[in-house]
Write a protein that binds this DNA or RNA. Structure first.
Lengths: 340, 340
DNA sequence: ACGCATCGTCGATGCGCATCGATAACTCAC
DNA sequence: GTGAGTTATCGATGCGCATCGACGATGCGT
């Protein structure tokens, strides 16, 4: 492996000059710049990350703490992961995987060993045990998810409250008077991720202001549970029933239960689920969705941490960013009675 | 951040002694070892990864190249990723994410900058464009998947041929004379990942030796396509039909199509799918599965590369390891007529 | 023509650690 | 009690780069 010294020698300049050509931190004449760049090409020189980190005190690596999650969720986690990794590259950073198995000590390890310049934590719980550690780390950390006490923390997430409002608003506009909201699957609820609460609060708020009724019913992937929820909803509904299933795995089971009850989405019942546009279109009946914008949340998380890394941590920062959600009508919901 | 020099000072020894205590590469008296270890505790010292990498020429980081994959596959990718990350920790290594978006240049980048000591490539295609680059890298690389020409490469994968044989063997033992195999979804087939071919070759081999007939039919997630495949299979089958759907996403669609044809797995039809035991048990009718052992493949991949890193790359290595698959009977397949 | 900025480059230094050779402190045999 | 062999520790060095101060070269005004 060639070093910057080799490049300097080949170009007939000092090693420091090579360094300045690369960093641009001092003016370099066009002539020597060219000589150096040619030498770099010739030798296919690439700077050594370890040496660079040692000298500059920057690794250009961001630690990504991924959750251990029941299998059913992995697809959505993976979307975050891959968008985060790709976005990090745009800022000339790399992503180091830190699994939740390592817990809080894992955070201290990667930060303490200075493997990473900062961290992104996914799937932050309302009362996450790692928060005290996060606050004590002297590197930027961005949380995806909003803990109960976000003071002194930098958080970002989809605006679940807005999502809840949008769903109820649209179903109400389509003429539904009773709207049933299926909860997330128990594995999620048990984690006390507070986006569940935020979503529910959004549905209630909208229900109140629009004068419709919202039923909260158990969710999950257990067909019996969903069947029971559906039957209860049908019993309490006058007019055409409406369901909101913000958890992708729940909506899957819901679809089958509705079909077994002889109900066709878009005709006898309205259903709003959560899925990417691609996936939503692929359904037998294209699914109206509330898009929680995982890719956008990921991109912004990376941007936030990279900005923090640029400006160097000047004292403790605190911020909270909510990404607007998007509701999309497709064939699984009734159309509003009068146009628009 | 304390340095080893600080530790040395606190313990009243030389910095090099601290280093030897940590590495164990020279004998240290019990007395000084204790002094040093106490000082490390006191200062919560953690060695600086960059400096360590620079001096030792080992980063203790493994690059993991994750595929860009249509959304439906992400769940299974994620299982590999998380097991790989956790296993790497057992060998005191970390995982750096390299996305496929960076392509072959990405491999050269992370190796050239010496961010990684080695690489694991997932989802290697039969004629993967990255293979020439892989062969030219002077670091250990483990491929998950078997390319057409594995010479000079270290590969590991599930034994898909064995998997195909097991499926046909078991269905034949249950009395089926015509067995339909649904292909993977087009996104996979188009990649020319050669596990598809290996699986099919396994089914054919078993069919020939057992004297049963195997039909190969188009797969995918398009309900129309699957419906057509099913109808064709039914038309060509005498006796109870049998289906093998080794692609998890295909089996999902298959289940619904069979149900729409009034066929109940385990009674009127046999179905073998692919899913984790947990997921298989969760199905309305527990699914007989062929387990492709993703976790075991992941673990072994990490072990292989870590072993290679230990022994230092002494000349080019070449190896090919196939992980035995496991077939499990559950309620979705007929029982063999006479006991066991 | 002379001082004075400005620009471009060089040399030296240090980041924190691993590692090598040297050496002091012992042990043991004679 | 002296030399050979151990054992435990130290000091010095270098890994490859970023960065700082210094300095020669150049251009400007007077």
């Amino acid at each position: 492996m060639p070093t910057s010294k080799d490049v300097a020698q080949a170009a007939g300049v000092a090693q420091s000059t090579v360094s300045y050509v690369l960093s641009g931190k001092r003016p370099i004449s066009e002539k020597t710049r060219k000589k150096v760049e040619d030498a770099i090409q010739q030798l296919t020189y690439q700077p050594n990350a370890g040496a660079r980190a040692l000298a500059s005190r920057r690794t250009r690596v961001i630690g990504l703490v991924i959750p251990f999650i029941p299998e059913l969720h992995m697809a959505s986690i993976m979307e975050f992961v891959s968008v985060i990794a790709n976005t990090a590259r745009l800022y000339d950073h790399d992503i180091l995987l830190v699994t939740e198995d390592e817990g809080a000590p894992g955070l201290q390890r990667v930060v303490g060993q200075q493997i990473c310049d900062g961290l992104i934590l996914m799937q932050v719980e309302g009362d996450d045990e790692r928060l005290p550690v996060v606050r004590s780390l002297h590197v930027p950390v961005v949380l995806i998810g909003i803990p109960h006490d976000p003071s002194g923390l930098v958080c970002i997430d989809a605006d679940f409250e807005m999502a809840g409002e949008q769903c109820v608003h649209d179903l109400a506009a389509a003429g539904h008077e009773v709207i049933s909201v299926l909860d997330w699957q128990p594995e999620v609820v048990d984690r006390h991720v507070n986006y569940v609460e935020r979503f529910m609060s959004g549905t209630d708020k909208a229900a109140q202001s629009l004068g419709v009724k919202v039923l909260h019913l158990p969710g999950g992937t257990d067909r019996e549970v969903i069947a029971e929820s559906v039957d209860k909803a049908l019993a309490e509904t006058t007019g055409v029933p409406a369901f909101i299933a913000p958890d992708g795995t729940v909506q899957d089971v819901l679809r089958r239960v509705l079909s077994s009850r002889g109900l066709t989405p878009g005709t006898d019942v309205s259903v709003i689920g959560s899925a990417s546009p691609t996936l939503a279109e692929l359904q037998p009946i294209p699914l109206s969705t509330i898009d929680l914008r995982p890719a956008e949340v990921s991109r912004r998380a990376v941007k936030i941490i990279c900005d923090l890394l640029e400006t160097e941590n000047q004292g403790p920062t605190e911020s909270l960013e909510l990404v607007p959600t998007v509701i999309t009508h497709r064939a699984s919901t009734l159309r509003p009675p009068h146009g628009s």
